[in-house]
Amino acid sequence: MAEKDDNTAEPAGLTSENLAKSEPAPNEAEQVEHVEEQAKELPAGFPKAPPAASYPGYMQNAAEPPKEQAPGPVRAAFILTIVASLVLLIGQVVTIFFKQQLVDQAVKATPPGRKLDLAQLESNATTLVWALFVGALCFGIIMVLFAYKAREGTRSARTVVTMLALLGLVFQLGLVRSVFSVVSSLLLVILVVLLYLPSTKDFFPKVGKKL
Rank of each mutant, 00 (worst) to 15 (best):
M1C: 05
E3K: 02
D5I: 04
D6A: 14
N7E: 15
A9S: 13
A12W: 07
T15P: 02
A20C: 09
S22I: 11
S22G: 11
N27D: 12
E28D: 00
H34I: 02
A39P: 04
A39D: 14
K40L: 07
P43F: 06
P43G: 03
P43I: 04
F46D: 10
P47R: 11
A49I: 11
P51C: 10
A53Q: 11
S54V: 02
S54A: 06
Y55K: 13
P56Y: 09
Q60V: 14
N61G: 07
E64L: 02
Q69D: 14
A70T: 01
A70K: 08
P73S: 10
P73A: 10
R75F: 01
A76Q: 10
T81H: 03
I82F: 08
V83D: 03
A84N: 09
A84G: 08
A84R: 12
S85M: 06
V87W: 09
L89Y: 11
I90N: 04
G91R: 10
G91Q: 11
I96C: 10
F98D: 09
Q100E: 12
L102N: 12
L102S: 15
Q105T: 06
Q105I: 04
V107F: 02
V107G: 08
K108Y: 07
K108E: 13
A109T: 06
T110N: 07
P111A: 12
P111M: 14
P112N: 11
R114F: 14
R114A: 14
L116D: 08
A119C: 00
Q120T: 05
E122N: 07
S123H: 04
S123R: 10
N124D: 07
N124K: 06
A125E: 03
T127I: 05
W130H: 12
W130K: 12
F133L: 15
V134A: 12
V134T: 10
G135S: 13
G135C: 06
A136D: 03
F139E: 06
G140N: 15
I141G: 00
I142D: 08
I142R: 04
M143D: 11
L145V: 12
A147F: 12
Y148P: 00
K149Q: 13
A150H: 13
R151S: 09
G153H: 03
A157W: 12
V160S: 07
V161C: 15
L167H: 11
L169I: 14
V170C: 04
L173P: 05
G174D: 07
R177M: 12
R177S: 12
V179T: 04
V179Q: 08
F180Q: 02
F180P: 00
V182P: 06
V183G: 01
V183H: 02
S184K: 02
S185P: 03
S185Y: 01
L187C: 12
L187Q: 11
L187G: 06
L188E: 10
V189H: 00
V193I: 15
Y196P: 00
Y196A: 00
Y196R: 01
P198Q: 05
P198I: 01
S199I: 09
K201V: 15
K201N: 15
F204G: 14
K206H: 05
G208N: 00
